[in-house]
């Protein structure tokens, strides 16, 4: 069983959902982010947030995966002040919805004053609503940007054990862990972390407070990042307990603080019935045969037949 605690499923296909479920992903978290080009209306942003708590959550369920999300104004779009002000007004309403496990992904892109302003405002919101935080660390000037993100969290009075610093690498992980934060690693080809490097890091740091995610999105990325890393780690002799921590238990521990994510959600799941509708709409097209499965995990474990 795996949790992928960072996956932008609005950009992924149904094949991906099927592949993830088959690989053992039982739950995932979809952070609110930008979508490849900046939105120019508050309304389009609001509809995006609606889809995270609505249609996408339903769609994942149709493939047997439990879907959670984080709500936030990302750093890139924070630089459009008119948009940002409008989105900030809407955030509290979305942050309190069912299945929202954190404020995120928020933080820095180019480390501008506007990014800082809305980062701080959202940290205050997370604190007020008692939600964990997912911090996106910048690609450019990464090391300083990561340190600065943690400085700001502390200045805003956040407890590091409620904050995941994501997209770490070999150069940032030591400080992230030393300061008491959760250290996320995105297994994303070419730009972020590779899974062979991740295995080396697990060998060095163990599994405490380390979280592996795929960050799969609309770019060239792999929705099986978590499952493949787990397999590679096990094949490389990493302790099974460590693998379980970083691909399952740690994410549940920190995002579970929201009280919106429970192990029973997937251990005792509703059946898959693709005849189900969401606001009148189905994932089925053209008279396709629906998949209907009753959860049988428990039945398989049950020795008594009566």
């Amino acid at each position: 069983m795996y949790i992928d605690p960072h996956a932008h499923m609005v950009s992924r296909t149904t094949d991906d959902y099927e592949a993830m479920a088959a690989a053992g992903v039982v739950a995932l978290i979809e952070p609110a982010f930008w979508v490849g080009q900046p939105r120019t209306f508050v309304g389009t942003y609001v509809d995006y947030l609606s889809s995270l708590v609505g249609w996408e959550r339903f769609r994942a369920g149709q493939f047997g995966i439990r879907h959670y999300c984080t709500i936030g104004l990302n750093s890139k779009e924070a630089n459009n002040e008119a948009l940002a002000e409008g989105v900030m007004e809407w955030l509290p309403r979305f942050a309190m919805k069912e299945g929202v496990v954190a404020i995120g992904e928020i933080g820095y892109d180019e480390q501008t004053p506007l990014e800082e302003k809305y980062f701080r405002a959202q940290l205050a919101l997370a604190k007020e609503l008692a939600l964990p935080v997912m911090v996106h660390t910048p690609h450019r000037d990464k090391k300083r940007g990561t340190s600065r993100s943690m400085d700001v969290c502390e200045e805003m009075g956040l407890d590091p054990s409620w904050v995941v610093i994501d997209h770490n690498n070999e150069e940032t992980v030591r400080e992230t862990l030393d300061r008491g934060y959760w250290a996320g690693f995105s297994i994303y080809p070419s730009t972020k972390m590779g899974n062979a490097r991740m295995v080396d890091l697990l060998r060095h740091y163990g599994g405490d407070r380390i979280i592996v995610d795929s960050a799969c999105d609309w770019g060239i990325s792999d929705c099986l990042g978590v499952a493949k890393t787990a397999r590679l780690a096990l094949a490389s002799g990493i302790d099974e307990q460590v693998v379980r921590q970083v691909t399952y238990a740690n994410a549940l521990c920190v995002y579970g603080k929201s009280e919106q994510m429970h192990e029973s959600d997937w251990l005792d799941p509703p059946g898959i019935d693709q005849r189900t509708l969401y606001e009148g709409n189905s994932i089925l097209r053209g008279g396709r045969e629906p998949r209907i499965e009753h959860p049988d995990r428990h039945a398989a474990d049950d020795l008594l037949i009566d």
Partner: peptide, 14 residues
């Protein structure tokens, strides 16, 4: 400084 840190990051990633 940023570029020097970037070089270290690239090397660390192979």
């Amino acid at each position: 400084r940023i570029l020097l840190e970037y070089a270290d990051e690239r090397w660390a990633a192979g």
